[in-house]
Design a protein around this nucleic acid. Structure first.
Lengths: 318, 318
DNA sequence: CTCTATTATGCTCAAATTGAGTATAAATCC
DNA sequence: GGATTTATACTCAATTTGAGCATAATAGAG
């Protein structure tokens, strides 16, 4: 329409590169150069005349910078500038008008995670998302009371609170990581809201370790997507070594979901979907040795295989 | 890294604006200005200093250009330049290096579709995707024989053919619209492959009406996403008027899925999930009058409501 | 060498969900 | 008034799920 508006932008590709170390899901971060100690996600520019697609561009700088073998890559979302954070109602309009940046977020999965100090644990950034040891204390002690006060008698806010946090009488849904983060942002419960000027006072509690710019939001998007995908596509195996025990698969799944699963039912699904086959070898550890399995459909694109239905059980609210 | 590469791009926002007219899903198209008669999806540039987010930018030019009320909007995928088509292995490298364009694809749903000539029926572009009258002839008569010849003795190709088209002995999966399109593109079975120079000879049959650039690919992405979403989120109601019969909901769902559903089971799901409530009024048409219902959760964001499990039945392969 | 802790694996069983019907009701069209 | 059309109620077997008990195979302690 009108040509007197800038339409030219720079594109950068941000990646939530996820792996599982022990029983903790981790995410590759780069150290902060500025004053604060906040980590950030790795990112790099996209040169359209150098790389045919953005995914190729992404793989390129990930290899160059991290020497990591990322197998699975999936585009998450494209965020259009202005504050580079949540897309809430009011945005900080105090940008300098020089160059606009659009950032394309990616989720990548890696089987290994060398250099432990560069990988940051998910649940340090999102402590309320790990339910493996029961309902996290931070919810009842901090988040819920604050959010309830925030919603007051606003019908819409209460509805969202119920939907997204399951409060007071609905079940917790592990996939709503992004929705919960956004609600907390909106309510001024996370540090980023203060940094963006949406919140007057600095909140007293941390509510998880902050990240640079909107990176925590991208990580939340990645978590949501991965948790959802796990339930209908066999992506767990992108995080497993070539041979593994069934318990190992379960522990990895549980780590990502932040929830404990029923062992026998989990294995029943694995068996029914014929996703793994025995290698013949056995693992040696404490207790009875377990059979070692391998993923049946390596090499070729397993992108649209049926995946394992995860037995989440019934009682998911306390 | 190196600064001697262009990193500046233009962004355009393309939209697959979907509605249902009668029993046909339709998509808003703009007429072709060039020699061919190929329609295209509406698109517009994104001005980062004018619109805070891309979604706002999108809504803006949609309102300006079409005077349509689009309720539901969802980002689909961001395509990075170079040919502006499928992201297959070889891309046409004969681009002029002036200005690069990144296009962000959106899916939008509209309850009405005025000006019938501007709306193009899905299944004219994808005739193999409509199974409501049984398995489409075009599959057995054209597509499958060609694809089988194409795959030859290539194990990987045969595997994909089975995965994506269910040939020879697996079930058809209605969600793999994009995968099927991409496979056909790769095999040179759609006109776009010829236009991109991936295919030497012009194929004899049309295999669905072509669209400009990579627009048919974007539409395929939209169809895949919508078909998938329908099964776990109550998005159908974004396509329904304020009052409707249960059969109307079912017909709309069937139109999008391209499949017939079991009536009683469909209604059972609707009832169980408590998504609709009676208005008290009755519809008048041929046959016994049906009760008119309305969606329970209008106004507020129904984005993450459970949605209706769709009873797709067992025998989905012929 | 036996007991115990630990992990793996096999099997059961009731409850819930799903797929696929049949039967009946209420309107219009001719 | 009967055929046609559409709506709605109800049934029932098969399958899937949630939740559990029982047993097997190892390492380490005493």
């Amino acid at each position: 329409m009108d040509k007197n508006h800038t339409a030219s932008v720079l594109i950068d590709l941000s990646a939530a590169i996820v792996s599982v170390r022990g029983d903790q899901p981790v995410c590759l971060t780069v150290p902060d150069v500025s004053e604060h100690q906040t980590p950030g996600l790795p990112f790099g520019p996209f040169y359209p005349d150098r790389h045919r697609t953005m995914e190729i561009g992404l793989r390129q700088w990930v290899i160059e910078q991290t020497a990591l073998d990322i197998g699975y890559v999936e585009q998450l979302y494209t965020f259009g500038d202005r504050g580079r954070r949540s897309e809430g109602p009011e945005g900080g309009d105090s940008q300098n008008e020089e160059e606009h940046i659009v950032s394309v977020g990616y989720l990548a999965l890696s089987k290994q995670c060398p250099q432990p100090d560069q990988w940051s644990e998910w649940y340090k950034h999102f402590p309320w998302e790990d339910w493996r040891n029961g309902r996290p204390n931070i919810l009842n002690q901090q988040i819920i009371p604050y959010l309830e006060a925030w919603s007051g008698s606003d019908e819409l806010r209460r509805l969202r609170l119920q939907q997204v946090f399951g409060f007071p009488d609905k079940a917790w849904n592990d996939e709503f990581v992004l929705d919960r983060y956004e609600l907390m942002y909106e309510a001024g419960l996370v540090w980023e809201a203060y940094a963006d000027g949406r919140q007057k006072e600095k909140i007293s509690t941390q509510n998880g370790i902050t990240m640079q710019l909107d990176h925590r939001r991208i990580l939340a998007t990645a978590m949501s997507r991965l948790r959802a995908k796990l339930k209908y596509r066999p992506v767990v195996f992108e995080l497993m070594p070539s041979a593994f025990t069934l318990t190992h698969v379960q522990k990895t799944t549980e780590a990502i979901l932040g929830a404990i699963l029923h062992k026998q039912n989990f294995r029943r699904q694995l068996a029914k979907n014929e996703l793994v086959e025995p290698t013949g070898q056995m693992s040696k550890a404490r207790g009875r040795p377990a059979e070692l399995f391998k993923f049946k459909h390596d090499e070729s694109q397993s992108t649209n295989l049926p995946g394992l239905r995860i037995p989440l059980g019934k009682s998911r609210n306390f």
